[in-house]
Each structure stands twice: as structure tokens, then as C-alpha cells.
Computed example of a mutant assay.
Amino acid sequence: MTLPAIFDGHNDLLSQLWADGDHCGASFFSGRTGDISLQACRAGGMAGGFFAIWAPGEKAGAPDPMATYRAFTPIDVDKAHRVTMEQAAILIRMAEARPDAIRLCRTVDEIAAARQAGAMAAILHIEGCEGIGADLAELQVYHAAGLRSLGPVWSRDNIFGHGVPFNFPASPDTGPGLTEAGKRLVAECDRLGVLVDLAHLNEVGFWDVAAISSKPLVSTHSAAHALCPATRNLTDRQLDAMAERGGLVGLNFGVAFLREDGVKNPDMGVERMVRHLDHLMAHLGEGGVALGSDFDGTMIPGWMESAAGLPKLVAGMQAAGYGPALIERICWGNWMDLLRRVIG
């Protein structure tokens, strides 16, 4: 079969560009080292995705690259506001400089137009809303600038709720859920047509969103807790609730969320990713599963190397007996169907 176009549920390119001091995104076009570059995306068939803004906290020393991270302390709010704005500006500058290569999209029709033109279709996403105040004024501004997806928390607490720590083996039921400000945030996202991402919420927060939002329940980059009992993964009960609401999970490529032992080790076969896809589909159906790589934000399997390695995952699906229509849905169609129901 012809390799399908891929729409990816999560990447951390913007935070990496920001950390490198590349505030115009020039290295994306010139072949930067990392998971995501224009060359790697074109080689791998990645034609669009969610581009995340993430404000890093202060580092507490060099971590063990093979270890699973644990808990994270809150970030300075003033820094978060500044960093959020600066990273949003990077994507806006990239799209203005090279509309032939990348476009900031606000609707599914704009995604389709970008694909037709051969440009990457970028959805602006905020991962952890420390850059938004409790009065939600910044949310209105970012929405006007193109924001169409956000996660109220990353894996650290903020004014909107409680993030799930990176523990293994453990339950995602780790503490309180959304605050009153968080509940207002979810309601306003529903009104505006902004997707609320469940990826880093703990279990109580998950159920809070389910009670408040009328939209499909979505996790842009997670995996199955039954196969890898990391706190960041979704339990079967959560998956069943998502299925009832016509929700979707983008499969996380992070090895620590896929391996049975939860170890951050890139030595892992494609078959393990297919097992997670199978498990997710058993609960969500063929229309409820997509891809959410976490490129440039996690340790991916060694054989993939970068976005250029995406055809190897497609080959793994083919080897497992997935037909062309199902592969196309997982790689592209399911995200388009979900986004049309949420952002229009």
C-alpha cells in the first residue's frame, strides 16, 4: 500500500526550539537534530499534528537518562506566562515565514487545505496552563491567535488542577482533581471550541472533565495502563468512559509508557506498540485510536530514530494484519473526525 499521511497528536518541537534560542524556528527548516524537522517529517509522511507549548521548570541536576521521572515542583508563574507567549510566537513566525512548509490551522478545513498544498498542518496546543491566569484572559487571547487545544495541567500541580506524577507501577488515582478555576477553564474551552487534553491529568481530574465537558474525551498522547501500569497511562475504566463519549487516544511513543517493565530504555520492538493499539481499539473501537508520538519530548524506540522512522510503525501495523483502511484511520482519519466534532 501507499504510505499514509500521518497526523500526530503531540510533539514538543516548540519548547526545544525555545530552549535552543531558535525563536524563529529556522533550524526546523534546515534539518535540526532531534525527532522533528521538516526533512524528517517529509521522509516519514508526517503531514500535521499538535504543536505543544510547554514551560520547563528549574532543573534539579542531571537525571539518569534511563530512569522514569517522578514528581515535579510547580513552575514560577511569571516565567510560565513569558515562556508560553514566546513559544506561541515561534510557531506563528514559522508559519508566516514558510507557508509552503507549515501552516497554523484553526479548523479541519484549514488542515485539509494545508495538506493539499503540501504544507504541514499545525494545531497550536498548550501543555500545562501555567501561562493562563484564573480569570482566563490569556485563554481568550491565545484562542484568537489560533489555540485550539490545551491540557489544563502537565505532570505538576497548578491553579487549575493536579497533574499525575510519572510513577511506575502505580495507579493514576494520585490525589485531588480540578480546582474551581480548572472547572471554569474546561467550561470555557467547551464554549470556544478548544479541545481539553486529558493526557497529564490524574484520575480524579479525568472524571471532573468528564462531568463538566459535553465534548468527546480525548488524550492526545497516552497508552494502556493494563499493559504498562505507569500513572500516565489510561485504565480500562477510563478507556470505556472515553468510548461512551466518542473519544480518542493518541498512542504515546514513549518507551517508559509502553514497556511492561516501565523502564526508559529504547530497546523495544514495534510489536509492543501494536499491542497497545490492539488494547486501545478493544475498548475504543477502530475510530477511537490514533497516534500521539510525543516527539522531542520523550525517549522513543531506538529503531524509529525520528519522525523519518514512522513508516516502520506503519509496516508493523501491516505485519499485524491491519488493512489499508484501518491504517489510514489510525494515521489520519480518526484525528480529523475528532477535531471536526470539537473545533470545527
Rank of each mutant, 00 (worst) to 15 (best):
G128W: 11
L195M: 15
S37Q: 09
N11L: 03
A319T: 15
D64V: 13
A134D: 15
R115W: 01
E188Y: 02
R272V: 15
A19L: 11
D78C: 14
A134C: 13
F295K: 04
G44R: 04
P65I: 00
K264H: 08
L248S: 05
C228L: 12
A325N: 07
C24D: 10
V196D: 03
F160Y: 15
S37Y: 06
V274R: 09
R32S: 10
I132S: 05
N233I: 12
L339W: 14
L3D: 07
A226N: 06
G131I: 12
C228T: 13
A187G: 04
F7G: 14
V204M: 13
L124S: 05
G151A: 14
R191N: 08
D197N: 10
A122L: 11
D208H: 04
P216F: 01
A122C: 09
I212Y: 05
G133D: 15
G285C: 05
A71D: 06
L17N: 02
A114S: 13
S293Q: 01
I212L: 08
G288Q: 04
G292P: 06
V263Y: 10
E271R: 09
A224N: 00
P99G: 07
A187S: 08
G31A: 02
I36W: 14
F160S: 02
A112D: 10
G302N: 06
N202E: 05
V342Y: 00
V194P: 00
L258S: 11
G161V: 06
L104F: 05
T174R: 02
G297Q: 07
A319G: 10
G128E: 03
H221E: 09
A101R: 11
L3T: 02
I343W: 02
P4I: 06
Q140G: 15
L338T: 14
V209L: 00
S149A: 13
Q140P: 04
I212S: 04
A243Y: 12
G246S: 14
E127Y: 06
G247P: 06
G321V: 08
D208S: 04
E305V: 04
W303L: 02
E96G: 11
V209G: 00
E286P: 12
D278V: 04
